[in-house]
């Protein structure tokens, strides 16, 4: 992080790719004021997550250091920066866009891949068995069902079913 940035490492196509992603359109508006980082509740508890730094790294075209990082997965999606950004960079959506690009290049945090798997299997994040419905009945609540088939079909339509079965990180050119 503290070394001099090697211009030869810079890939200007990265910012084009992010800007073409839904939610990433406003990345070039950033003038690095740091309102996002100052507002960030994750930054308050760890220096590993710093939205201004991530945006700046992306603008510098540091493709692998951004897309393969763990820190892009640390946005809690609270929208504090999103509401306060004076340039309307729409940072929460931008962070989603950067993660979407990372996923397309084979980088996904295991916890998110696990969630995709759960959705394909159950249509929801928690499995519904007779146990859950018995607990609900004890509270006088109606039973619920999973409806996983339609969700699984939508995951197939978007190609995310393959993501769930691909296993770990693939090579960036995968």
């Amino acid at each position: 992080m503290n070394s001099v940035i090697d211009a030869g490492q810079s890939d200007p196509a990265l910012v084009d790719e992010i800007a073409a992603e839904p939610g990433g359109e406003h990345i070039r508006r950033c003038f690095a004021c740091g309102t996002c980082t100052a507002s960030c509740p994750v930054r308050e508890v760890t220096e590993r997550y710093n939205p201004r730094r991530i945006i700046h790294m992306a603008l510098l075209g540091l493709r692998e250091p951004v897309l393969s990082s763990d820190f892009i997965w640390l946005c809690s999606t609270c929208y504090s920066c999103h509401e306060r950004c004076p340039q309307d960079v729409r940072i929460t959506e931008l962070m989603h866009a950067i993660k979407n690009v990372a996923v397309r290049h084979g980088y996904i945090h295991p916890s998110f891949r696990a969630q995709v798997e759960l959705l394909g299997q159950h249509g929801r994040l928690y499995e519904i068995t007779s146990f859950e419905n018995e607990r609900r009945a004890e509270q006088g609540l109606p039973p619920i069902a999973e409806h996983e088939q339609e969700i699984a079909a939508l995951l197939v339509a978007t190609g995310l079913d393959r993501l769930a079965t691909d296993g770990g990180k693939r090579a960036a050119d995968g």
Partner: peptide, 24 residues
């Protein structure tokens, strides 16, 4: 009957997939 995941967990993974789950 039929309501399922809102799509939130997919926003970080693929924008369109999250939107489809919401739209459903």
């Amino acid at each position: 009957e039929g309501l399922a995941c809102c799509g939130f967990p997919l926003k970080a993974v693929q924008h369109d997939a999250a939107l489809l789950l919401s739209a459903r």
